[in-house]
Amino acid sequence: MYWQQLQCPGSPTAHGPRRADLVTDYDYLELRHESTDAIFRDADDEDESSLPAFLLGSEDELGNVEFTARPDGIEDARRFIDETNFDEQALVIVQHRTDACHGVDLMYVASPADRFVDVDFCRTLRDADVECSTDERHVLASLIRLPYALSDRSERGWSHGGGTSCRLPPSLRTETTDEEDA
């Protein structure tokens, strides 16, 4: 198509993941820490200001992840992690900083042929009756348990992204989807 060739060189595709690459049978859990400090740290990383993200495929790799805060729900998170069977599953942990009035939502999980997994988040507004200030900063951790193991795939590349809009990318958008979404 003509306009596909008119896209600015180097710009990311506007189309999003292929439907066939979507992963839907994952488990998801999120934590909110009412502080700017990370909930999870990489034991090898001494930078305390960073918010590391992890793709974990074994108990050994899990050993490198430190719990460094105790927000509400931390025990549920421990259980979620402990219940992960790395022979059949993999675990993604992504952390975001946001203000106290916003959250994040997981938009989609995809597993294209050339990557292990891509996850995409969007920014959401918390309910109007949540007492919060936009000056206050929180850390959110998203835990995603994938239904396939790292050892199942040769591709190890993965990514996590995000945007302010929770509108699905064009490749995933249909009237049916939007109606259900609403």
């Binding site: 506007a14 189309h15 998801y28 549920d76 998170a77």
Partner: peptide, 23 residues
């Protein structure tokens, strides 16, 4: 905190690619 349902249920009948502006 709860284990949350996400959009997986919504992503069931997908298609359509959008046009890109020249702007």
């Amino acid at each position: 905190m709860t284990v949350r349902e996400t959009r997986r249920g919504f992503i069931s009948a997908l298609a359509v690619a959008g046009a890109t502006s020249l702007a």
